[in-house]
Computed example of a mutant assay.
Amino acid sequence: MGKLEGKVAVITGGAGGIGNGMARAMAKEGAKLAIVDLNEEAGNETLKQLQDIQPDSIFIQANLAEHEKLNNIIDEVVGQFGKLDILVNNAHASRNMSFAETTKKELDLSFDTGFYPTFYLMQAALPYLKETKGKVINFASGAGINGDANQASYAAAKEAIRAISRVSANEWGPFGINVNLISPIAKSPGMEAWAEEHPDYYEAMLKKIPMRRVGDIEKDIGRVAVFLASEDSDYMTGQTMMVDGGSIMLR
């Protein structure tokens, strides 16, 4: 039996990149999956891949910026599978620009697609996570921890997600619910496109990674997500897991 046999997991942004890698890793460990994504074509393609591994997988097409509809995602998953064990808040959109140029438009995009969906989906999932003593996996970023240039809106939303993750870890610990974060560096399609456009910056980034490579979305990020979703992490909560090859070493 896999580490997640019989568990039900929701992964936002599950149709591509890190979300896809986590979905495949969890499916191979027996999890029943609901992947949520705005991109219907990519979602259906990913669903086909997942169903070859885990037939009990579904795709939910949703715009996470429509906050009033987020409860429907949790309701659909519980209606389909009867419970919820794992909530993975991975989706996030943002635009990079200098602090001085950043406007409310950029802040709204980052918070509307990243922070608020994380917040509201956690609230909607709480009653079901109490029943299963479930797991929440949220996403942080080195951009927020380090304060990377030209990423004001993204960094702000990511650090806000870290803040509510710690608050909920304190409040939800007595219910047996674990809330942790992953801060990754991974070879997603976005990263690959950036590397092609800016090879010099990419090589400079690699030199700053002690492991001298970018993480694999399934083998590196996905496996840590499996750990955080499984009983192996039962005594961990409120922690930020730096899955970045040693780029940032928290103290």
Results as ranks from 00 to 15, higher is better:
residue 87 L to D: 09
residue 164 I to K: 04
residue 7 K to D: 07
residue 127 P to H: 07
residue 190 G to C: 14
residue 121 L to I: 14
residue 37 D to H: 02
residue 173 G to E: 10
residue 230 S to A: 14
residue 144 G to T: 02
residue 225 A to Y: 00
residue 151 Q to K: 00
residue 102 T to N: 02
residue 26 M to V: 04
residue 217 I to F: 07
residue 26 M to T: 05
residue 195 A to Y: 02
residue 220 D to R: 12
residue 79 G to P: 09
residue 72 N to L: 15
residue 74 I to G: 15
residue 98 S to Y: 00
residue 231 E to P: 01
residue 164 I to A: 09
residue 166 R to K: 15
residue 193 A to K: 11
residue 207 K to H: 12
residue 1 M to E: 09
residue 66 E to F: 01
residue 146 N to T: 01
residue 200 D to Q: 13
residue 152 A to V: 04
residue 223 R to E: 15
residue 223 R to L: 15
residue 1 M to Q: 05
residue 57 S to R: 06
residue 8 V to I: 08
residue 161 I to Y: 08
residue 246 G to I: 07
residue 229 A to T: 09
residue 211 M to T: 14
residue 10 V to C: 07
residue 249 M to Y: 03
residue 97 M to T: 02
residue 17 G to D: 10
residue 105 K to C: 04
residue 239 Q to A: 11
residue 194 W to Y: 13
residue 4 L to M: 10
residue 210 P to F: 00
residue 158 K to E: 07
residue 160 A to Q: 14
residue 87 L to S: 11
residue 167 V to K: 00
residue 132 T to Y: 03
residue 98 S to T: 04
residue 11 I to R: 01
residue 225 A to C: 05
residue 195 A to W: 03
residue 250 L to V: 06
residue 116 Y to R: 04
residue 197 E to R: 14
residue 179 V to W: 08
residue 245 G to D: 10
residue 222 G to K: 12
residue 80 Q to G: 01
residue 84 L to Q: 05
residue 125 A to E: 13
residue 204 A to W: 02
residue 249 M to R: 12
residue 133 K to Q: 12
residue 187 K to P: 07
residue 249 M to F: 04
residue 20 N to R: 07
residue 171 E to S: 03
residue 238 G to Q: 11
residue 205 M to P: 01
residue 242 M to R: 03
